[in-house]
């Protein structure tokens, strides 16, 4: 009897010792993986923000899978991971992102330029649009041509003749209604968050649904087709404003570079007694005056871009015809 008691007492020691060792290693492992997970999450949202930032500078289309909230924090577009606290800013990228990125997203970068047939285009920069698979856009048909031109065909965008009887499929987290007269629509029956944007030049008006109806509007002014399409994808005035300002900043920098370049070219040509280059001076200087008027401080006057297109492209054509270096 005494022997049996002694033996079981020994086994208690065995179990305690072994268990203690295992517990120790388990806690070490757990704390390492937890900090690894946090780091990975932070890295993942940062990698996503970097990838969007990088993609923004070159025309094309990239696919991402990530989940993030899009917001404008102090004039900076920011991505925040939906689980956890990781946050990464997009930092002045001219991007129009939907309110939330929940699943697979197709990020499309489009170049913005002043163009005319037969003449080199004057490039102004890029804008980025993201179409998220869990965001559904219901768009009135009058805007179909314009949107397709910029965003291409996308399963996220449904063109409708009217907004009545919209059936929102399951899995959709955000619904954006785009039309001409939204307050009159009946909201679709859905648990998804509903936003509305009316696009009628020169305004984009943003709505958010509350109590089963579209609430008070926030009015945002915009100019240009690309800006209007941006309003669709952003669906929130603050995000839209962020993106528009970033675009204006970059376009202002680009125009500033063109201005300096043309000025230096004209000065060089003045010092070269070559009739082939002497004829280039005047058209370059005239174009430069137009470019100068398009810049307000460090940003471009987006309102004036469309009216400046024709005169600028006329100078571009003249320069090309004379065999001179074109505007840019």
């Amino acid at each position: 009897m005494k022997g049996q008691l002694e033996v079981s007492f020994q086994w208690v020691y065995v179990l305690i010792a072994g268990g203690a060792f295992l517990l120790m290693f388990f806690f070490v492992f757990k704390s390492c993986t937890e900090s690894g997970d946090e780091r990975a999450q932070g890295m993942s949202v940062r990698a996503t923000a970097n990838a969007i930032s990088l993609a923004a500078w070159q025309e094309g289309s990239v696919n991402f899978t990530f989940a993030a909230d899009v917001s404008c924090v102090g004039d900076v577009l920011t991505l925040q991971a939906l689980e956890g606290t990781a946050r990464s800013q997009l930092d002045q990228v001219p991007a129009f992102l939907p309110p939330r990125l929940a699943g697979k997203s197709n990020v499309v970068t489009r170049e913005v330029a002043l163009t005319q047939t037969g003449v080199p285009s004057i490039r102004l920069g890029n804008v980025v649009y993201a179409l998220d698979e869990r965001t559904r856009y219901y768009v009135q048909r009058s805007h179909e041509t314009r949107l397709k031109h910029v965003l291409g065909n996308s399963p996220s965008i449904i063109y409708v003749d009217s907004f009545s009887n919209l059936q929102v499929p399951g899995g959709v987290e955000t619904v954006v209604l785009v039309g001409d007269n939204l307050p009159a629509v009946t909201l679709p029956q859905t648990k998804a968050k509903v936003y509305g944007v009316t696009l009628s030049e020169p305004q984009a008006i943003f709505y958010t649904a509350s109590n089963d109806r579209l609430g008070s509007p926030k009015v945002e002014l915009y100019t240009g087709d690309y800006m209007m399409v941006g309003a669709v994808v952003a669906a929130r005035p603050q995000t839209y404003r962020c993106a528009k300002e970033n675009f204006a900043r970059r376009t202002g920098a680009v125009l500033g570079i063109y201005h300096t370049r043309n000025e230096n070219l004209a000065i060089d040509f003045q010092n070269i007694p070559d009739p082939r280059t002497q004829v280039c001076i005047e058209p370059l200087m005239r174009a430069n005056l137009l470019i100068f008027n398009l810049i307000d401080g460090r940003s471009a006057r987006l309102d004036d871009l469309s009216t400046a297109t024709t005169p600028l492209m006329t100078h571009q054509r003249t320069l090309q015809g004379l065999g001179c270096p074109v505007i840019a």
């Binding site: 065995v14 072994g18 060792f21 295992l22 388990f26």
Partner: peptide, 16 residues
Amino acid sequence: PILIVMFLALIIGLLL
């Protein structure tokens, strides 16, 4: 038995 269990725990811990 105690030593065996401790060794096993050590191996598992090292592998982790």
